[in-house]
Structures are given as structure tokens and as C-alpha cells.
Design a protein around this nucleic acid. Sequence first.
DNA 1: CGTCTTTGACCAGCGC
DNA 2: GCGCTGGTCAAAGACG
Length: 211
Amino acid sequence: MSDSTFLATDFLPADPNFNPNPMLNYNYLVDYHGQQEFELSDYLALEDGSEEDSTSNHLIGCHSANPVLPEKIIDGSVRYTDDSVRNVAPTPRSSSIKCKGGLKKIKTDAGFRIAFRTKSELEIMDDGFKWRKYGKKTVKNSPNPRNYYRCSSGGCNVKKRVERDREDSSYVITTYEGVHNHESPCVVYYNEMPLMVPSGWTLQASNSSSS
DNA sequence: CGTCTTTGACCAGCGC
DNA sequence: GCGCTGGTCAAAGACG
């Protein structure tokens, strides 16, 4: 499954005005390893030219929650630049989607799974959605527990896992799974800040492609 | 009182 | 088949 490799990227909140909400900080997203500017609007465009099912509802649907920056992903595992692989979770019947800019998403039965690593002191970043914690697990070979969250909006079964990098606890590894079938509770807030919304970025409810 | 977190138990998948 | 591991459930407690 080597063709499902992500380019390794980092999310670097170096600016003091940094807000962990990726929706509000798309201009802070930098392809760190590639030394190349990487904006969230680019990421939104990734669906174009995808190898399958490019209805483009997926990313629109996961707008503020999902699209930060993934590390490399090898079919359910996060692969770091040092080629170490840390298990995220098996991704049964997954399929990779080739994306512009070298990024890919993992599609599962529950929708897409996107993992990324964020340098942040905050373990829970405000991504515009409301999450309910439903589990906590210690992970093998990791001193840090993994927390499980589910979108608290009724009928929305998007999940996310949050854990600290076992080797560098200043990084938080977040994995989103599924696509929200509702708008972000802070859409109103975004609409009040039109300059913060990338061109071509439309805040619309997704068709629940995961169903 | 409603909502959320905590946490131990349970279950399923996978490798040996 | 068995043990390990990750993911989820659900009861109990905390909190506003």
C-alpha cells in the first residue's frame, strides 16, 4: 500500500495570534518539510482529479474540522519522516485517493480518515465542532493515552482520536474519521469574518457520503 | 437536572 | 485456539 503515502507536513502555530481552529488559520498551514507554502484552500482543491468518487462533498462537508495537515499515512498508520510507523488504526477496505499537492485521503466505510500532527500545547483544539469524549486508552509503546471523541451533534457519527506523539509530546496526533452531516456550530462566526474564508470555500452542509 | 468526563469491562480483529 | 491490542460501551461521578 505504498501508494497511499502522504507527504509529511507539519502544522506550525508559531504566530502568537495563532488560533488552533484550522478554519481560522488556513494561512498558517505550511508544508514544513517541503519548504513550500501550503494553504488550506489548496487542500480543498485536492478532491479535483481524485481517482474515484470525486463528488467534492467530502472536504466541503468536513470543512473546519478535518483539513489540517497530515503526516504521511500508510493505510491506517502514521509514518513519520524518520520512517518510523506508529499505528493509528487499521483501515479496513480503505482506498487511497490521489490528491493535488501529493496529499491523499483515506476513505473508509465511515467516510474519510485524516490524520495529522500538530505542534500544540493544547490537546483539544477548537475545530468548530462539539465533541464528546467516549473513551480513553493507553496505547502500546506509548506513555501517552489516546482519547476518543465523537461529534456530539445528533445523528453525526464523526469520530476523532487524539494522542500525543510518543517521542515528542509537544506534538498532538489527531485523527478524524467520517464526515460531518451538519454545519459547524461556528459557521455564523465565520460568516462574520469573510476575509478568513478562502476563495472557493463554501460553507455548506455535506451530503453524508459515508452513508 | 442535564450534560460531560472518567474508567473498567467487554468485544472484535489480528497475529502467532 | 489463544493472547494481545485497539475501539466502544455504559455506569457512576463531577460539574455548571
